[in-house]
Design a binder for these strands. Sequence first.
DNA 1: ACTATATCGTTCGCTTCCAAACGATTCCAG
DNA 2: CTGGAATCGTTTGGAAGCGAACGATATAGT
Lengths: 176, 176
Amino acid sequence: MPAGFSSSDADELLLAERQVQAKLGELEGGDAIDLDALAAVSNIFRVASTARYHFERKVLVDHDLSFTAFTVLWVLWIWGEQESRHLAAESGISKGTLTGVIRTLEKGSLVERRTHPADGRLALLKITNDGERTMEKLFPVFNQTEAAITSGLQSEEKRELANLLRRVLTILEGDA
Amino acid sequence: MPAGFSSSDADELLLAERQVQAKLGELEGGDAIDLDALAAVSNIFRVASTARYHFERKVLVDHDLSFTAFTVLWVLWIWGEQESRHLAAESGISKGTLTGVIRTLEKGSLVERRTHPADGRLALLKITNDGERTMEKLFPVFNQTEAAITSGLQSEEKRELANLLRRVLTILEGDA
DNA sequence: ACTATATCGTTCGCTTCCAAACGATTCCAG
DNA sequence: CTGGAATCGTTTGGAAGCGAACGATATAGT
């Protein structure tokens, strides 16, 4: 079972923290480590990785879409036709990666590309009718799965989780 | 700027939510979407992706390590020598992927592999002395960066963030 | 003992992912 | 208008990522 991080009880992270302390205790004069930051950040990565794998296996496989391809298609669906570099930034991938993803999406007739009429350097990407129909079927299922994996949280807690994450994102986008 | 999701104010997600509602409003008789789940889950992905990119560029590049290679090395550092499939599960990757990552780590003399003396099918992976020294230097910096990107949160908030994420993880590991 | 069966790590084909180099196009200075 | 500089998307090379198929090894059952 890949991308699962093993069947980890909450205890395991605590054990890991003690192991880290033991490892760093061996060093001379090192500053104490921030265990709260360690726990928060590593859980972000664990949840993201596990959830991504979950979405790909349970939702996207039926439509032959990778998680990234879905993200790109989602951006085009919501925001409409746009230039390549903007789509890449909005999807969180490099422009080089986008070229390959668009190639894949074009094979499935979900996206079409054209050259900007006034500027030959630019490429305009647009979702096709097939792509629209796919998203109209797919997104509700995707969102139901989002609801399912957060079903252990009250609505207020989901909002709080989102807010805490947004505050981390603010720091990250300040590049520090 | 890859893996950045564009410079997104908190406003942008709200705009996206309205766009989603408009898109789904066009459909006949669809159930309402869970906006709280949408916000929580998409922020998990955004933060994880942005943070991963940040770590690779600011911390790991100095040691020629990918994020995944660092994760694998960290597991070996903390938990000691172990079998391949266990290491893969603990690192959140498939065993096929691990083969390649180990190959990369072996090139850098950070990890060594041997066959299990009592069972010829098993491979035992162990961190080398070079690997130990690398982690002793690298991990404190890594943790300082974890502290930096969560510096907008109080200690209590970091623990709460970790707890909320653990509860999502519990549902995910139940595979539902 | 011997033949199925199961398990393990590797290999294979494909997609994703990045930075860097590249060709094409546009813009600007003179 | 004509060079140089800037900008754009694509290509390239290499690593990561998966599932599936594969050989090698070990374990049962008979």
